[in-house]
Amino acid sequence: MESLTKTILPWLLWLWLVGVILGAFLYAPPAVGFRGSSRILFFHVPMAWVSFVAFLAAGVESLRYLYGGRAPRHDRSAAAAVELGLAFGVLATVTGALWAKVMWGAYWNWDPRQTSILVALLFYAAYLALRAALEDRETRARLSAAYAVLGLVVAPFLYFVMPRMAEFTLHPEPVINRTGKVDMDGKMVLVLMSSLAGFTALYFWLHNLQCRIAELAERRASLEGDRP
């Protein structure tokens, strides 16, 4: 039963994502005033969302590692979350920059959200650089967990400070705007929500795979270390 679930669920996920791609191009209408370029929304927003979820998960797993008995699985989970968060964060930045070029005429505008995600990417790239600079497994897990928790403490300041740095923003309003309403066509909302669900599931699937690969790599390294 378990192996059946493991076989079927990834296929269902891929089918779902194919449905999202078709829905984004064939079902949802373009947003008023944004022409066809608005379709990037169905991929850019979920990528940024997954990146945020991954970085938050990395912070929580790091806390669990430091204060929850130092189980190696929490360290592997945090590292896998950061790797995926970085990958999705880079994709969100690139798709955002491409859209900015089409709509605003420049790839980079120092928009508060562009700047925030750039700093987040720098922070988590530094996290991976720290891991690469530490050889001992326990030291690597302990110090990188402490650094990830420090990131969790500092990150909120960026969200308060950044908007003040820019005098204006051209970035579209969030899906749920400041008045608490969804100011978007119903078909677009349906495709966007389906995409968010699909990308979130994709993140958890990839995260699970990454953790299993990391565990196998650690087992192999310890077996090779035991050899005379």
């Binding site: 700093v119 720098l122 790239a125 650094y147 990131g151 500092v154």
Partner: peptide, 10 residues
């Protein structure tokens, strides 16, 4: 520098 600058940026 790599580790401290993102922390000290705010």
């Amino acid at each position: 520098a790599v580790l401290a600058f993102p922390v000290l940026l705010p």
